[in-house]
């Protein structure tokens, strides 16, 4: 089985978000880029499956400009065998999925995260599956490989399920897929330098959505404090003032 792990390059989760030019664009000055947390966990699970046997190869792929290569190198250092970068500014989820559809054809299992932590599009995985005419399972919280067959755990609203779906398949992963993300070891970082990182040109595609402007949330009014020894007052405030009880 060959696995493709889709890697979104996102600002570190603690980044202070700012915008430039009349709030029209994200200000990437000084931003630390990381592998999207879900993609990092997807890669971790792919590695575990490979170590258990039954997986020939793990490729990581990103649609992005040259600056994303350090993120792809990190994925190689974690243990992917090779990397593909489709050389284009990602415009929206539709554009990104169109670019990935070509590369993904050669794989049995494609892992996408449920959402990228920057634009929170929740789109690429499902769109890609539809473009390829293959099935997808979303909200995946576990993947096992038993006798060449995938056993998938997914969350449903109000519970969870275990299921099978034949490959090729896009699995869109979320919490539970792996517990702790793998951190590259020194040896991995050395080896990653020699692993192939192929750059391929983009195909023609247009974005279907456009970000017009951004806003930061209005600052919150000061927190109203209640005394520790008079905690009952809190319930009165919630009942009479906030009217939520």
């Amino acid at each position: 089985m060959k696995i493709l792990v889709l890697i979104s390059n996102v600002p570190d989760t603690t980044t202070k978000i700012r915008f430039t030019g009349d709030n029209k664009a994200f200000d990437a000055t000084g931003v630390q880029w990381i592998i999207n947390p879900w993609d990092e966990l997807a890669l971790t699970r792919a590695m575990e499956l490979k170590e258990a046997g039954g997986v020939e190869k793990i490729t990581v792929a990103n649609v992005g400009a040259k600056i994303t290569e350090s993120t792809l190198r990190k994925a190689l250092a974690v243990g992917a065998d090779d990397a593909v970068r489709i050389d284009a500014e990602p415009l929206d989820a539709y554009f990104v999925a169109t670019q990935l559809a070509e590369v993904a054809k050669d794989y049995d299992l494609i892992l996408a995260g449920i959402e990228a932590s920057d634009y929170n599009g929740v789109g690429v995985g499902g769109m890609l599956a539809e473009m390829m005419g293959i099935n997808s399972v979303s909200a995946v919280s576990g993947i096992d490989l038993e006798n060449g067959e995938l056993k998938i755990h997914r969350d449903i609203d109000g519970g969870s399920q275990v299921l099978t779906v034949p490959v090729p398949l896009v699995a869109i992963v979320q919490k539970g897929i792996a517990i702790d993300p793998r951190i590259p070891a020194m040896r991995g970082i050395m080896m990653a330098r020699k692993k192939p990182l192929n750059v391929v040109p983009p195909v023609d595609a247009e974005a279907r959505t456009e970000f017009l402007s951004y806003e930061l949330p209005a600052p919150k009014a000061a927190c109203k404090m209640v005394d520790e020894d008079n905690a009952k007052e809190l319930i009165r405030l919630l009942h009479e003032e906030a009217k939520v009880l």
Partner: peptide, 17 residues
């Protein structure tokens, strides 16, 4: 979240989640 992205492709529609 599972179905909307697929439907957007089928309908040639843009998606916002």
């Amino acid at each position: 979240k599972a179905i909307a992205p697929r439907v957007s492709v089928k309908l040639n529609a843009g998606l916002v989640s």
